[in-house]
């Protein structure tokens, strides 16, 4: 029975197919919202699915002078990392399928895998746009990773656990957005940086470096990277909601909360201008990291007093 449960969890629900479709749904909502903010119609509901099917069905061109194995495997790892991370988070407010003490750290690293793979994929090809994109993607990763980690540490400390389920249980009774507003902000903005959404889309700034690290990817590889990104969007939103917006609860309410968060994220995306890479790094280290650290210290001091 246990094996069957594992197979279902991995392939159908909440991992595997479900998370793929849910990720695409979130991507659609994101695109639709941005379109509406820009007074456009936006895509129809099946557009992300249609895009993925089309890309998957297309020929994948492997450039000469690249490591072909790496070229093919990297997108798979990226998607696998994103999918695996979904097993440890309370998707649509349900209990995570797997849970152990310290799963928060594992999840965070699984989520970073996508950026890492993107960077490697860019560095693997000889294309100049890819190289510049890879450099930028990795630079950006190093700038937001530390503040985000600090921001997510906050809930972990007050809940006194590294286990996602414990933290979200704690968050049910404590709306951490009120007690740790800076942490919430840093986490949301960090999520946007992770997903390379505007204004942090310098690594894939199309007017400068075409598609950044993924310029040489076409067909299947590109589809897998895109799917990975959609899944991460969903996982990231779930994580932030579970930690800061009242934890796991009624699935419908939980879903509504993630959607509200998505509206905010889409609004920020459509209203802000892209930052240059050095501006992004400056922003994170000068404000993001310091603020997160300040809040962290205040929290430790508070815990010490209490």
């Amino acid at each position: 029975m246990n094996t069957l449960r594992a197979v279902i969890a991995l392939l159908f629900f909440p991992g595997g197919l479900f998370i793929l479709f849910a990720g695409m749904a979130y991507e659609w909502v994101d695109r639709k919202l941005i379109a509406r903010f820009q007074n456009r119609i936006g895509p129809r509901w099946f557009q992300p699915l249609a895009d993925s099917i089309k890309l998957l069905a297309k020929e994948e061109v492997i450039p000469t002078d690249v490591n072909a194995i790496l070229f093919v495997v990297l997108p798979v790892i990226a998607l696998a990392g994103a999918l695996a991370s979904a097993l440890y988070v309370p998707i649509i407010g349900l209990e995570p399928s797997y849970s152990f003490s310290g799963d928060l750290i594992v999840t965070l690293y699984l989520l970073s895998l996508l950026t890492l793979c993107t960077g490697l994929a860019g560095a693997n090809t000889l294309d100049r746009f890819s190289l510049v994109g890879a450099t930028r993607a990795l630079t950006q990763m190093f700038s937001y990773e530390a503040p985000v980690l600090l921001a997510l540490l906050g809930p972990a400390i007050v809940a006194e656990s590294w286990k996602i389920s414990v933290i979200s249980e704690y968050a049910k009774s404590h709306w951490l957005i009120i007690t740790q507003p800076i942490g919430f902000l840093v986490a949301v903005i960090g999520l946007m940086g992770k997903l390379e959404m505007p204004p942090f889309d310098a690594p894939e700034a199309e007017t400068e470096i075409v598609a950044g690290a993924l310029t040489e990817y076409s067909g299947r590889g590109l589809a897998l990277f895109h799917l990975g990104k959609s899944v991460e969007l969903m996982v990231g939103l779930t994580l932030v909601t579970a930690f800061y917006l009242g934890g796991v609860a009624n699935p419908l309410l939980f879903f509504a909360k993630t959607l509200m968060l998505l509206v905010v994220v889409a609004g920020v995306q459509s209203l802000l201008t892209r930052l240059r890479i050095e501006q992004t790094v400056g922003l994170w280290w000068r404000y993001g990291a310091l603020l997160a650290l300040a809040q962290f210290l205040v929290m430790i001091a508070y815990e010490g007093v209490a």
Binding site: P198, A205, T207, L271, R274
Partner: peptide
């Protein structure tokens, strides 16, 4: 604006 990444 598009070149600057301000698509709105």
């Amino acid at each position: 604006a598009h070149e600057a990444g301000f698509d709105t």
